[in-house]
């Protein structure tokens, strides 16, 4: 009897910390694509308005924000037309929030699927980020309509920094994925975090310049300003507003900080995720 020792894979209790099989995820790219398609198709099934819903939610939110924050509370919008200012903020923030919230429940929401079949578990959060990206791009279309209108009226002055848009989207997606998979790995055993996250994300929006510009708190609230400086989402939203509307705080250093932050959370996230995916079925 002769057996050749070229095993395709070995199942063992634990692998090394850095054993990340990116090649395998690439082999499952078709599954990522089909998951994205499933998410998009199933959202619009049996609805009358279909994809219109992607527009309605931000439109109503902008209407309310304009009325409450700009109208009643008189919060500055840095000279940018209020509806456009808020739409920019909530479109970007919406992408971050929906990616993050969906990826934090990767293990708990997919427990029945993960319990029955093997595929690289990272496929799931990655496809979530992509399907939310599609939703985001549709909403970005809405933003461009409004933006075109104000541009035509000459109320805003865009500049070359708007070419950074793909970079901003990439950073936003990467940070939400990294944070999301860290939380999802930790919640399989200790559910306490889910409660914290569900209200924490709302609070986090207020320490991100979504409904106010960074410049407006710089002088008045020194402490808050420093907190906001460490929020890696702030530079992304500010750079977006700066590029498209000509007002905002833009600094390459801040963007570099966001980039480093993304690399770190992705790195930590993938390691944690990798360790969790092997045994989470026993604890979930």
């Amino acid at each position: 009897m002769k057996s050749i020792n070229n095993w395709t894979h070995t199942i063992q209790p634990k692998t090394k910390w850095l054993h990340i099989n990116l090649k395998e995820i690439w082999e499952y790219r078709d599954l990522i694509f089909i998951f994205v398609k499933r998410d998009i198709v199933s959202i619009n099934k049996q609805t009358v308005l279909g994809p219109l819903w992607f527009f309605l939610a931000p439109l109503f939110t902008v209407f309310i924000y304009t009325f409450v924050f700009s109208g009643i509370a008189q919060i500055s919008t840095d000279g940018i037309p209020a509806p456009l200012f808020y739409l920019a903020g909530i479109t970007l923030w919406g992408y971050f929030q929906s990616c993050f919230m969906a990826t934090t429940t990767t293990f708990t929401a997919n427990a029945s699927l993960f319990g029955k079949v093997y595929f690289p578990r990272l496929v799931s959060p990655i496809s979530t980020v992509f399907s939310n990206l599609l939703k985001f791009l549709i909403q970005l279309g809405l933003f461009f309509c409004l933006w075109g209108y104000y541009f035509y009226k000459g109320e805003i002055h865009p500049n070359k920094a708007l070419l950074l848009l793909p970079v901003l989207i990439f950073l936003l997606g990467g940070i939400s994925l990294g944070l999301g998979i860290i939380i999802s790995s930790l919640t399989t055993k200790y559910r306490d975090l889910t409660y914290f996250i569900s209200f924490g994300i709302t609070l986090l929006m207020y320490v991100t310049p979504v409904i106010y510009p960074l410049s407006s708190i710089k002088e008045k609230y020194q402490f808050a300003y420093h907190v906001l400086e460490y929020n890696p989402i702030s530079p992304l939203i500010e750079a977006f507003r700066y590029g498209f509307m000509g007002k905002g705080t833009f600094s390459v250093f801040d963007l570099a900080y966001s980039f480093v932050f993304m690399v770190v959370v992705l790195f930590v996230g993938i390691i944690l995720f990798n360790r969790t995916e092997k045994t989470f079925m026993d604890t979930v």
Binding site: I11, Q12, Y118, T279
Partner: peptide, 14 residues
Amino acid sequence: SRITAPSTGSVKIK
């Protein structure tokens, strides 16, 4: 089927 990892020992698959 690689849904959960063993506590000890190994499985080799070709």
